[in-house]
Design a protein around this nucleic acid. Structure first.
Lengths: 213, 213
DNA sequence: TAGATTGTTAATCGATTAACAATC
DNA sequence: TAGATTGTTAATCGATTAACAATC
């Protein structure tokens, strides 16, 4: 029973909890206290208990948390079992790498189609899926009803494709383009991934180290 | 003259300022006020002025900010002109895509080498650079003295390679592996990019939309 | 000068941490 | 029961926003 609204900071930490609990489970650890988990994850025990209690009391006083049980609860909260139909737009270097590298299924998504505008690429097979031409998008969406779209296309094309996809029923964008997609429509989720910005913050810190440290 | 310590939140916003100012410059915009920029970037004008004043007074009362000038100042702060020698470890799907897709030069880095452990891959050319075998790492680092390393390798290999690279003089990691690399050494910068976690937060929000909105 | 907009201080808001009673 | 550890409230801290005097 999640509270009315969970803060963005908490949501961003959930996948990390899920990941660490998965590793603990695989190592055969059955139970863990907020204190032990905090050491592992470099957080405070307080924060862990606060975060988890946004969704419910998953622990037991004097015992701690059951690793497998807590992991499953967080998985349910995140929706890993929902298997949302997903498409990738853009089968260049990045689109192909995402298709091949990301395990969509374990993250609540199923990759159903990949699209590109370049006829030289369409027909290629990536992650067992034939790349379709973007002209087939409308027909495909009517048939398969994807709800998540991964955008690996140039900046200039992004807003137009996004609008088109919203009309076709897409409700979540994982946006790798250089364009800051902001959901005009309130019922659309957007996760902008700016790899260039990420590198630039590292550059800043690297230079700080050199200059001061 | 940056203040002693700039908060992580401010640093994470700098690349986005840099990006928007670049676009404005390319569109021929010469000056902009914090109010106008705030509308464009969906921030408050207050925040923009606070952020910029961490580094100095770049504006002019009654006028606003000179776009090209402010962009250059932020570029200098980030260190885009330093051109740090950079290597990529791991030339699988993701390593190749990063090599091909990211413009390192405009972000203060120069890609100098790519390494992989798989002899089937070494010798291939990616982004005009021949993939070297990981055994050549020591020799290469003595010669070329790279300071930034991009890790596109499996989780299991990450900590060991990272330790080895620190000994070889690497001072910043852009880490795409599934391992939470935390700098043991205080003079090493780490930027963990967890694409899986990013997708998972989107899955959460996509499901929220469906359930509530 | 008058108008605009900054730089900067003060107020607010939210997130993190600490503390402790509840309870297994 | 005693010890451990949670769930939860209260205190602290930091980041964001508002306000306004300085000044171009």
């Amino acid at each position: 029973m999640p509270k009315n609204s969970i803060s963005e900071s908490v949501i961003k930490r959930l996948p990390r909890y899920y990941r660490f609990l998965g590793e603990l489970m695989n190592s055969g650890v059955e139970r863990i206290s907020s204190g032990q988990l905090s050491e592992l994850m470099k957080l405070t025990a307080s924060q862990i208990r606060q975060d988890l209690n946004c969704f419910g009391g998953f622990g037991q006083q004097g015992y701690g948390y059951n690793v497998a049980g807590l992991r499953e609860e967080i998985g349910r909260i995140l929706g890993v079992d929902r298997q949302l139909p997903t498409i990738i737009i853009g089968a260049g270097n990045l689109g192909k790498a995402i298709a091949a590298h990301i395990n969509f299924e374990t993250r609540g998504c199923v990759l159903k189609g990949i699209f590109d505008i370049d006829p030289k690429i369409t027909g290629e097979t990536v992650a067992d899926i034939a790349v379709r031409h973007i002209d087939e998008l409308e027909k495909f969406c009517r048939d398969k009803k994807p709800v998540v779209a991964v955008l690996c296309i140039p900046k200039a094309a992004t807003q137009e494709i996004a609008d088109r996809l919203v009309d076709l029923g897409i409700r979540a964008f994982w946006n790798f383009s250089h364009y800051d997609l902001s959901a005009k429509h309130s019922s659309v989720a957007v996760e902008n991934v700016h790899l260039g910005d990420s590198l630039l913050t590292l550059t800043y810190r690297a230079n700080q180290m050199t200059d001061n440290g």
